[in-house]
């Protein structure tokens, strides 16, 4: 009897491995190995088109160069600015969206669907859309603001700080609903009797929001912040389509700089170093967040 059990168990273990193996194989080949390869490449000098130079091992030289590269500094600052501005705005807009679609009203499904449309639209389409809206001649922004006073029309994307603001706006439009859904999930687990009790005690709508909703929403807000931050850090499509990093380097972000270095200039070693640096930054960020969320969950359990 025991023997039969052991055989069954072993057979189940084998089946389990067979079930996981194909997925694991694809993950290893197309995600894990490439990261390791990036790391390896970043320790070399490799230039596409100059094969006679070979690919000498240079240790951390590329990373040293990265520390003293003014464009990389600029891209870091711009990326950071983009991440902070867009995630904060998205969290604020997402909170409003979540509060609205959490209510019960007729046609709520349709409203939820409508709010999800910007999230479902390809980022490339959203980028072209906002680029067109802020076009200097044909754009809706100018038409709305100045009507037929065409001499007043503003070339929005030609101004460095305005261009970054427009890119942020496009991102906020596109992804606030995603943040909204994460926050909605948090709203749905707040027990309703808390509000009833507060109402009995005479708390106003605002007091209920500040003292019940917001504190209990903290884990969901942190999680939305985590997802949005990591996604904003990877911004590429918007910049590629809307500004190509310009005007000047005003919207130059790390991922776009890495792309240019790797694929336009063919500096494989240096480009890989940029990629690895971005990867490490995201890793550090997510670990920090996860720790914050983890301790938050523990706090909740304890109380």
């Amino acid at each position: 009897m025991m023997r039969a059990h052991a055989v069954l168990r072993r057979r189940e273990g084998l089946a389990a491995w067979l079930m996981v193996a194909p997925a694991l194989l694809v993950t290893v080949v197309f995600a894990l190995y490439p990261v390791a390869d990036s790391l390896w490449l970043s320790l070399h000098h490799i230039f596409v088109g100059i094969p006679q130079l070979g690919s000498p091992f240079v240790g951390l030289e590329n990373y040293q160069a990265l520390l003293h590269d003014p464009v990389a500094h600029q891209a870091f600052v711009v990326t950071l600015g983009f991440v902070v501005l867009s995630t904060l705005l998205e969290l604020a807009c997402g909170l409003i969206i979540a509060l609205v679609i959490h209510e019960r009203f007729r046609g709520r499904g349709l409203v939820r669907g409508a709010i999800l449309i910007p999230w479902a639209i390809p980022t490339v389409v959203a980028s072209q859309l906002w680029r067109y809206i802020f076009n200097d001649q044909y754009g809706f922004a100018n038409l709305l603001l100045f009507g037929d006073r065409v001499t007043d029309y503003i070339p929005w994307l030609a101004y460095p700080s305005v261009a970054l603001a427009v890119v942020v706006l496009a991102d906020v439009w596109k992804t606030s609903s995603f943040a909204g859904l994460m926050i909605l999930a948090g709203l749905q687990v707040i027990p309703g009797d808390l509000y009833d009790a507060a109402r009995v005690d005479g708390a106003t709508v605002w007091q209920r929001f500040w003292h019940i909703t917001l504190p209990l929403l903290k884990p969901a807000l942190l999680l939305a912040l985590l997802f949005r931050t990591m996604d904003a850090f990877r911004v590429f499509d918007l910049v590629f389509v809307m500004t190509q990093g310009g005007p000047g380097d005003a919207t130059q972000v790390l991922q776009f700089y890495g792309y240019q270095t790797l694929f336009t200039e063919g500096r494989i070693g240096y480009g890989s170093a940029i990629s690895v640096a971005v990867f490490l930054m995201i890793l550090a960020l997510s670990l920090t967040y996860l720790r914050a969320i983890g301790s938050n969950l523990l706090e909740r359990r304890g109380s």
């Binding site: 993950t27 995600a31 190995y33 390869d37 990036s38 990591m230 990877r234 792309y259 890989s272 990629s275």
Partner: peptide, 17 residues
Amino acid sequence: CVSMFPQMAIAGPVWRL
């Protein structure tokens, strides 16, 4: 961890592969 990867971190090697 893989779901957090920036595309850039694997782009070059995936292209070579």
